[in-house]
């Protein structure tokens, strides 16, 4: 091996790691406020249903020749809206309904993926993410999506927290239930699209829930919990990438493992 090719390959490693790190940090930042809202509202399964619908979105995107991200946003948004409309009214418990939706969406996605002609879809990379393969264009799209989520949630933060505590109180003070539902479901749909490459379809909810849950016992106010969740998410992303590089493990699951370790540490540090 000559010196020239060795330097070149180090530079390549640097660049794909930088891209992965940048995209991952954007996802961690967007996950913080959204994840806290989902934890406070006990909507973890809701995230699963929307996340699992992403696979179907990818398949449809590929089949129609569209950008996979676009397919994901559209299908995830439809899923999130349907679930939020149906879950309040169905005769079954909310957890049962969401379980039905989450697993049906995943199964449907897997079947649809198998029906795609040729080997046009790397199923494993959709399921567990492929953050090390993102292009600069992907990084830009991820930051765009994450930025949009953070902007919209910040804009309606007070109403979102109020509706979390009491939807009636929010309405009585002039808020709108429809707006609350749209902000949350559409943010979640966009989040699914931006987080999919990082952690994969199966672990999208984990990226939302784990940092928020780890932050909860350490925080004294809702806003500090969001800040702490962002920090924990960022550490997870960087730690997970390092772990993946050191042990040659898949990056997405490695990120979630680091988040889980922080959750365990936070829970043990302050037992309630």
């Amino acid at each position: 091996m000559t010196t020239a090719t060795a330097t070149e390959s180090i530079e390549m490693i640097d660049e794909f790691l930088i891209r992965a790190g940048l995209a991952g940090l954007a996802v961690a930042l967007a996950a913080a406020p959204l994840g806290c809202l989902i934890v406070w509202r006990r909507m973890a399964y809701f995230g699963d249903a929307t996340g699992h619908a992403a696979l179907l979105g990818v398949v449809l995107g590929v089949a129609l020749g569209l950008a996979p991200m676009l397919g994901v946003v559209v299908v995830a948004a439809i899923m999130a809206l349907v679930v939020s409309l149906v879950s309040g009214r169905a005769a079954y418990g909310v957890d049962t309904m969401l379980g039905v939706f989450a697993h049906s969406a995943l199964a449907l996605g897997l079947v649809a993926a198998a029906l795609l002609p040729g080997a046009r879809l790397n199923l494993l990379s959709v399921l567990q993410g492929d953050i090390l393969l993102v292009s600069w264009r992907d990084v830009a799209l991820v930051w765009l999506g994450a930025g949009a989520i953070i902007a919209v949630i910040s804009m309606f933060w007070r109403a979102l927290v109020n509706a979390t505590l009491s939807p009636e109180l929010m309405v009585a003070e002039g808020g709108s239930l429809l707006r609350d539902r749209l902000v949350l479901t559409l943010s979640l749909a966009v989040f699914v699209a931006v987080a999919m490459q990082l952690v994969g379809v199966l672990l999208i909810t984990a990226m939302l829930i784990l940092p928020a849950a780890a932050a909860a016992p350490l925080a004294r106010s809702p806003e500090r919990m969001v800040g702490l969740a962002a920090l924990i998410g960022a550490v997870s992303v960087l730690g997970g990438l390092a772990l993946s590089l050191a042990l040659d493990t898949p990056a997405g699951p490695s990120i979630i493992v680091i988040a889980a370790a922080q959750f365990a540490a936070a829970t043990l540090a302050r037992p309630r």
């Binding site: 934890v39 406070w40 509202r41 006990r42 979390t164 505590l165 009491s166 109180l169 928020a212 849950a213 909860a216 925080a219 004294r220 106010s221 809702p222 500090r224 919990m225 309630r272």
Partner: peptide, 8 residues
């Protein structure tokens, strides 16, 4: 209030 235990 729907005050989840995890909400400070």
């Amino acid at each position: 209030l729907q005050l989840e235990q995890l909400m400070p």
